[in-house]
Amino acid sequence: MKEIVVISGKGGTGKTSILASFAVLAERKVICDADVDAPDLHLLLKPEIEEEHDFWGREVAFIEKDKCTECGLCLECRFNAIKDFEVDFFSCEGCRLCFYLCPGNAIEMKPNLAGHWFTSRTKYGLFVHAKLEPGQENSGKLVAEVKQAARKIAERERIELILCDGPPGMGCPVISSLSGASLALLVTEPTLSGIHDLERVLDVCCHFGIPAAVVINKYDLDAGNTFEIERFCAEREVEVLARIPFDNVVPEAIVKGMPVVEYTNTNTNTNTNERVSREIKALWKKLEEGIGASGW
């Protein structure tokens, strides 16, 4: 089974628009959204939810006031989550230290419903996605559950390909989305921030031994920076698979709630520019060939 994960380091470079287009172009696949704390892919794929599952996060400490003698032992908390003998939900990491130390059994560890994940049907194929409750931690663990569910569905349906939309950044949810990936597709843009973040996220891929390739999105925004990205990729021996031009057709498609390659196919508006879709289709063809040749 092959698994393509789209990540970027910097946010807003076009991960979701590109992955949604792959969902249109690829024939048999399971799609999953590993950006669980700001998921957007569902806005384009319009899933019909078939199954909903609870995601239980780490427990959270709770102090029962009538049992608490304010002895102060719980203030050992390394996360400063206890102030005035109340637990700050956002700071508690559920380590249970206070629970163990409290001599009066005044602390209870409460289960914490941290989010949900869904298996859905879309017109593009089966789709696994999730929603983390706002402010929750442990998004890496939810990403792992989403990916696990996508693999199980793929096995059951004898599907050989998983397309995964990843989160921005390089911390736990990104590392989790990369685990077991056949290829990390790094979508960057020709800004100095884009380049800086590409370097860091490529280092993460190398650290975990995940093969990577690069897509330069909005490449015509800055020719000098695009050249710099190409030079950097050549130096690091990473292939640049596509250069996608900047075009307003991308936000237009998002507003219409459609993957961009589908939007340009169905849209009869004569202003619509085909360049973006052409590049994404060519990129997909390269990826398909790469998968076929089992290069990844």
Partner: peptide, 8 residues
């Protein structure tokens, strides 16, 4: 970016 623990 995001809405999970690093943001909060």
């Amino acid at each position: 970016p995001g809405t999970s623990c690093p943001m909060a």
